[in-house]
């Protein structure tokens, strides 16, 4: 178990592309941190630098109290689970799990015991003598997990481990991985581009965008207090509504002239107004007009898509309320409002 510290860690690939701008963060012992961001934002690069599979161009990386910039992956006391599992195809499940221990000259009986323990924890007991090609995707994923946990590493690294599974299995494995991590208490860094995975699994989320850390915070901080329009629109499904507005006469006004809320002191000019779909209420007496075009039925609730002041807008409606397409009044809870300046950062 260990802390992980990054000090202005930067990655420039040999072709000159800066995949990760100097980034610093500090992961506590036992914490589950999720790195999330769109495709190509540098998540894997960051993770692979921590794993030692990619050289660090600049900066300092500490795992525990050691600087490991130049330490071999095998000596960093880490275990990694890959997107395509990366199981050794010619070895049985048992040998796959034991391989890392064997290379570390662990005594045979201890290997036996640890493999049995891991197999039991992951429900792999019946498959120990099979080859990976004879397993389902979920089972392979578990073997990859087993290979990681038998080593008792100080740090788990996951690179989109669930993206090859179907939706249902993904939900199940998500819970299993999280529970396992809780039980073992091993510091973990988990890479995903799926914001649902990030929200549900993380103790803390690091949102990356274009090789830059956009925001670091707990899932609820990230969700309720995004520091930029990027985070606001990336996290949450459906994402936060973002409307062009302006501040004039001490109030925030939409383009159509509707007054939404009192403005923060001393600001004027154009802003972006953000509001989560569930923080909008249908209310005939509301100040805003919402033209509903489309109603999306989701079972437990509905999503209403349409336009407010000529801009795309979505709200959230519980299942026992019915509504017809057309013009409706809506009310926004001013305390839930987020305002961003024209560059996209939070006011």
């Amino acid at each position: 178990m260990a802390e992980v510290k990054l000090n202005s860690v930067r990655k420039i690939y040999p072709n000159g592309a800066e995949a990760v701008t100097p980034s610093s963060f500090h992961i506590q012992d036992g914490e589950f941190v999720v790195l999330v961001g769109p495709s190509g934002c540098g998540k894997s690069t960051l993770l692979r630098m921590i794993a030692g599979l990619e050289e660090i161009t600049e900066g300092e990386l500490m795992i525990g109290d050691r600087v490991v910039n130049h330490t071999d992956p095998a000596d960093r006391d880490i275990a990694m689970v890959f997107q395509n599992y990366a199981l050794y195809p010619h070895m049985t499940v048992k040998k796959n799990i034991a391989y890392g221990l064997k290379n570390r000259k662990t005594p045979g009986d201890e290997i036996e015991r640890k493999v049995a323990e891991a197999a039991q924890m992951l429900n792999l007991g019946d498959y120990l003598d099979r080859k990976p090609s004879q397993l389902s995707g979920g089972q392979r994923q578990r073997v990859a997990m087993g290979r990681a946990i038998v080593r008792d590493p100080a740090l788990f690294l996951f690179d989109e481990p669930l993206s090859n599974l179907d939706a249902k299995l993904r939900n199940q494995m998500r819970i299993e991985i999280k529970a396992l991590q809780r039980r073992l208490g091993v510091t973990s860094i988990y890479v995903t581009h799926d914001q649902v995975e990030a929200m549900t699994m993380a103790d803390r989320i690091i949102v990356l965008n274009g090789g830059r850390i956009e925001q670091i915070g707990s899932p609820s901080e990230i969700y309720h207090n995004p520091t930029s329009t990027f985070v606001a629109s990336f996290m949450g499904a459906p994402p936060m509504n973002l409307l062009d507005a302006r501040i004039a006469d001490g109030t925030v006004q939409l383009d159509g002239g509707a007054h939404v809320a009192a403005a923060p002191n001393g600001k004027t000019g154009p802003v972006t107004l953000g509001i989560r779909p569930e923080d909008v209420k249908l209310d005939a007496a509301g100040a805003l007009h919402f033209d509903i075009d489309l109603i999306e039925e989701l079972g437990a609730h509905r999503l209403l898509h349409g336009k407010v002041a000529g801009q795309p807008f979505t709200t959230h409606l519980l299942k026992d309320v019915t509504v017809e397409p057309g013009r409706h009044g809506v009310r926004i809870d001013p305390s839930k409002l987020c305002l961003f300046d024209t560059t996209g950062s939070r006011l």
Binding site: A74, Y99, N103
Partner: peptide, 13 residues
């Protein structure tokens, strides 16, 4: 696959 090489490296091979 590249990942196989990397997995082996982490496994100390």
């Amino acid at each position: 696959p590249e990942e196989l090489v990397e997995a082996a490296r982490i496994d100390g091979a």
